[in-house]
Amino acid sequence: MTPPVVELSGVSKTYGGVTALAGVDLVVRRGELLAVVGPSGSGKSTLLNLMGTLSRPSCGTVRIDGHAVQELSDRELSALRASTIGFVFQSFHLAPGVPAIDAVADGLLYGGRPRGERRRLAERALRRMGLGHRLHNAPHQLSGGEKQRVAIARAVLGDPPLLLADEPTGALDSRSGAAVMDLLHELHRAGTTVVVITHDRDIAASLPREVRIRDGRVERDSGVPVGGAVGG
């Protein structure tokens, strides 16, 4: 049986006395599409960082694709991110002056594949995103929606089991935002596990599962999967 993609049990995170997360249990099964929603300061960014193995919990266990984060060294966590997790950020994080195809190809830079293959995969991914005519354009020549599609292409280039999208529509107008959400739905249909972190309740409500966070706790989880024996 394949393990859940994300498995948090009793996870807390404190920053110098301030509690950002307090005893969160959350299981994300393979192939799910869910929203983590909450107002700013609710702890949803902290949750994203923990799921993304960018930080470690103060207590509790985090398992990503079966790997217990606390047992892995920093190097091993890096390798886990390279092979398992794709990130999409609100601010795109595209380096100025770098053509789209190279930016996307960098998604596999730390995965140990040769450059030619990375670029070939990047071109295919961009064409799939409808950006075949933008391969050699730098970020400043792209619209906001196009930039976010480039960033998504980079995140899913290596077909990671888990895609974490942090406010993916936050910097976009509603039309571009809708297009980006369509794209995430499409990736979900193709089998990718997608977690969208957002403060937008409408977006959250449009997804199959909605996890509401408030004051560092899970306030409501619309779809605790059947057989989710974790927590209690």
Binding site: G52, L54, D74, R75, S78, A79, L80, R81, A82, S83, I85, F87, F89, S91, H93, A95, D106, G107, L109, Y110, G111, R154
Partner: peptide
């Protein structure tokens, strides 16, 4: 810093 963060999220190690 943002680029460093991005590279870490893409899987770059300390050493890299």
């Amino acid at each position: 810093r943002a680029e460093i963060g991005l590279r870490r999220s893409l899987g770059a190690t300390h050493g890299q």
